[in-house]
Each structure stands twice: as C-alpha cells, then as structure tokens.
C-alpha cells in the first residue's frame, strides 16, 4: 500500500495514482502522520509489517536503481539551468538498497518470518532512526505549519516550516514539502524547483540545490544494508 505525504491535498498526487493504475490501497496523508509514527525523514521509503502487525523492517529507502529523472520531468526539451543542476546532483544520490530491494520483498513474500531479510526487534528499533526532543519539537512545528498552510495562512505557516527545518536538519521531507509549496517555474517542473526564482523573494534559508551541495548527495538517504 502507498501513503502520499502531501499537505496540499489529493489533486497533486492523483495523476500519479491514476497513471500507475494502482490496485493496492492508496492513502493520502496531509499532516505527514505516517512519517511521524514510522520515522520517515525522506521519501520514497518502505516499511515492512508482518501478519501479526509487527514491523520487521523499519522505514528505509527501498527503491529501484536510479533512473534518468530528467526524462520524466522534461522529456527531450532543454531543461532550465537550475533543473539541469538538480539532475546532476540527483544523479549522485546513493540508493543504498537499489541492488536487490525488489528481490528482498519477493523473498519475504515467499518465506515470511524465515526470510533472511526479516530483522530482529533490536535491529528494527536501532535502525528506526534517532528521535530527540528537538526532532519532536520539529514535528509539532510542522503540524502547526501544515494546518496554517491548508487553512490558507501561507505566510504564517512559513515560520513553523522553518522551525521544523532548523530543529530537524536531517529531515528532507519537511524541507521538500515546504520548498515545493513555494513553486517556481510554470508547468511540470514547478514542484521540483524548490528554490529561489528571479524577481521573487525566497522565504527560507536554504533550498534543495544549496542544501544537497552543502550536505553531499551521498547523505540524502540514510545508509543501510539489506
């Protein structure tokens, strides 16, 4: 099943759901409740839950080998320089589980608890990510930001989004959600621009391109082992 973390409501994610002709449950999470409860700090992420409701693999970047995202964003058209730069950085992102993640899921589907990819309770908790009072405070600020944003109080929401970013610097989802709301160029690239546009004030201290250059693309997803 899928959970779409999107504060702007169903219309943003719906085209993707329809294009995929999904037969599994497709849920919408405007408040990022799932991310808070399962420890998701960047997307896409997967969590494995067994028949009895026990988590056997916590949130992790389970996604296939990197693909040429420029094709889905801009086709063969020439990309704006910022998007070309974004694509260059994105190509350096490491998909720690790229090799074999789908096979690991198939193995679990076949073998259940005896699959070698099922983790012990200790491993599940240890791999679920650190949580501190600071990151808890970030989540509370994000919740307020989301309510203000969906209530039409965009300028009031920005302070709380920024606080969430400051308190939980490793949480890319908080940043990507807020930055993508600002928009950028018109068209299909708008949500992926996530940074300043000439002639418009940018309300955040950082943006996707600056941030990934500063932190390093290899840190974009938490390093894990299958």
């Amino acid at each position: 099943m899928t959970v779409c973390l999107e504060s702007l409501g169903p219309d943003e994610g719906r085209p993707y759901i329809e294009a995929s002709k999904a037969e599994h449950p497709c849920l919408l999470d405007t408040g990022h409740l799932m991310a808070e409860r399962f420890g998701v700090v960047n997307i896409p992420n997967c969590v494995w839950i067994d028949e009895s409701g026990q988590i056997v693999r916590p949130a992790e970047p389970g996604w296939p080998a990197p693909r040429d995202a420029s094709r889905s964003l801009g086709g063969d058209d020439e990309l704006p320089p910022r998007v070309a730069d974004i694509m260059e950085e994105a190509s350096k992102i490491v998909a720690w589980t790229a090799d074999g993640y789908a096979d690991a899921i198939r193995d679990w589907a076949r073998n259940g608890a005896s699959s070698r990819f099922v983790l012990s309770s200790e491993q599940v908790l240890a791999r679920s990510g650190e949580r501190t009072l600071k990151t808890s405070r970030a989540a509370a600020h994000f919740a307020i930001a989301e309510r203000l944003e969906t209530g039409g109080k965009h300028s009031e929401a920005i302070h709380h989004f920024a606080e969430a970013h400051r308190l939980a610097p490793d949480n890319w989802t908080y940043k990507r959600q807020a930055w993508s709301i600002e928009g950028g160029v018109e068209g299909p690239l708008a949500r992926f621009w996530q940074g300043p546009v000439e002639g418009r004030e940018w309300p955040y201290e950082s943006d996707w391109l600056s941030e990934i250059r500063q932190r390093g693309a290899s840190t974009y997803y938490r390093e894990i082992e299958l």
Binding site: I49, Q54, T135, S136, A138
Partner: peptide, 21 residues
Amino acid sequence: AGLVAVGPATFAGSALSSTAC
C-alpha cells in the same frame, strides 16, 4: 493561531518505541 501541537514520544531515543505497528 490558537493552535497546540504535540510531537512524537522520545523517551525510547528511537523513532519506534516498539516493533508493534
């Protein structure tokens, strides 16, 4: 804004406090 928010529990030190979904 008249809003109160609470963040997730941190006493366990990890995002999951137990393996229960």
